[in-house]
Simulated scan of single mutants.
Amino acid sequence: MSIGLFTQVSSALAEPITSPKTCRVGIFVTSLRNFKFADKSFRADFRVWSVCPSKDLKPLESMQVIDTIESEEVDYQTQNKPNRTESFATKGDVYWSQRDVSAVLNQNWNIQNYPFDRHTLKIVLEESIQDVNGFVYTPDFKNSGYQQDMSLGGWKITDFTLQEEKSAYQTTFGDPELMNKKGIYSRLTVSIPIQRVKYISFFKLTAGLYVAFAVAMLSFFYETGQPSLVSARTSLLVGCLFAALVNMRAPESVLGRTESLTLVDQIHIVAIVYIFVAALATVLSRLMNERGQGKQAMWFDRRLLFRVLTISFIVLNAIVISHAAIVG
């Protein structure tokens, strides 16, 4: 029995270890658009190609785009081409295939530091049939890239990388040839960092808030010695507070819901607190007038609170905005 076992082990060791088949695969991105923060998605148009040493290898047919919401693939074609590269040992013809793809991809946008946010868009292509023992991608670094003059609508591309990775799943998907409990497949990952270069949308979202704060600060020039002016000052501050609260909901339609405090949220919260402090100051100023301290109340409103609240609000805004711009 030991002799038979030794024979089986020797036979297994004698079998040649074959390397997986491969094709040179590249991608060229022609369009990036529809950056939707609320829907957590973006659209990419790109052309993907493969150069294979044999006709039986067809990676574009078994390739899938990972993490897509929807995709459309068109113009698949294969041509025989003479091999003038050093990618393959064969000196005969190689098989060049192309496919155009338009896909809507999931994107987890981090808008905490909006409008100074930076993101990395990813396009992931994966072999869906043969595991890494049978086939792997060889990235075509030289020819892959993106259209330099594409319009990104207020964004700019800061880099482009392409790398081959191995993706492991805790299943073989029922493949009877795989003996392990997990399947490992070759994938190509395209990473495209982008950075915002236009900030008009930020000013649109915060302009109403800043106006409400400015009006609230002007309320300090209403004398609280006259009941009619106290009522007008109180009504003005209530209107400013309501405007700030309503304006705080506006970014959700543009940026989507998030559980973290964004820069826009921080600015709104600070402004709401300051307006509420101005309302409390109105009550205190009125009480001072009722005690016959009218001049002190006027000094308290116009010389102290107006200056302290206005300057500190500007300083706090400069701090949080500068921090967001640095962190990105």
Score class of each variant (00 low, 15 high):
159 D>W: 01
59 P>C: 09
142 K>Y: 14
155 W>S: 03
65 V>F: 07
138 T>K: 13
142 K>T: 13
112 Q>C: 07
155 W>N: 03
146 Y>F: 10
124 V>T: 15
128 S>E: 08
114 Y>N: 06
145 G>D: 04
124 V>W: 03
120 T>I: 11
72 E>Y: 14
94 V>S: 05
94 V>E: 08
140 D>E: 07
113 N>A: 03
106 N>I: 03
58 K>I: 05
66 I>P: 10
95 Y>G: 03
90 T>I: 06
113 N>I: 00
93 D>E: 15
108 N>V: 00
159 D>F: 08
63 M>W: 14
134 G>I: 07
70 E>N: 08
111 I>R: 07
99 R>C: 04
122 K>N: 09
159 D>G: 02
74 V>S: 10
124 V>S: 08
109 W>C: 03
120 T>N: 05
130 Q>N: 12
67 D>L: 15
119 H>M: 03
107 Q>H: 05
86 E>R: 07
109 W>S: 02
118 R>T: 12
154 G>A: 05
111 I>A: 08
82 P>Q: 10
133 N>P: 00
138 T>L: 12
127 E>M: 08
91 K>Y: 07
116 F>H: 07
105 L>F: 00
151 S>Q: 10
143 N>A: 11
135 F>Y: 15
104 V>E: 00
74 V>G: 00
133 N>V: 00
76 Y>G: 03
148 Q>N: 14
156 K>P: 05
98 Q>K: 09
97 S>T: 04
119 H>S: 12
120 T>Y: 04
99 R>V: 07
61 E>L: 15
64 Q>A: 12
83 N>C: 04
132 V>P: 12
58 K>D: 11
139 P>W: 08
104 V>F: 01
148 Q>Y: 14
159 D>I: 05
64 Q>H: 13
115 P>R: 02
156 K>W: 02
146 Y>W: 15
85 T>P: 01
143 N>L: 08
159 D>Q: 05
122 K>C: 05
154 G>W: 12
151 S>C: 08
135 F>T: 01
155 W>F: 11
94 V>W: 07
110 N>A: 10
124 V>N: 03
89 A>T: 07
59 P>G: 08
149 D>Q: 10
129 I>C: 04
88 F>M: 00
156 K>F: 06
120 T>W: 07
123 I>V: 11
56 D>M: 12
143 N>C: 05
120 T>Q: 13
157 I>K: 09
145 G>W: 09
136 V>C: 12
109 W>V: 00
124 V>M: 01
59 P>Y: 06
109 W>K: 02
97 S>C: 01
78 T>A: 09
155 W>E: 02
78 T>I: 08
119 H>F: 13
90 T>A: 09
108 N>G: 06
125 L>F: 15
150 M>A: 11
114 Y>C: 07
104 V>N: 01
135 F>I: 02
57 L>N: 15
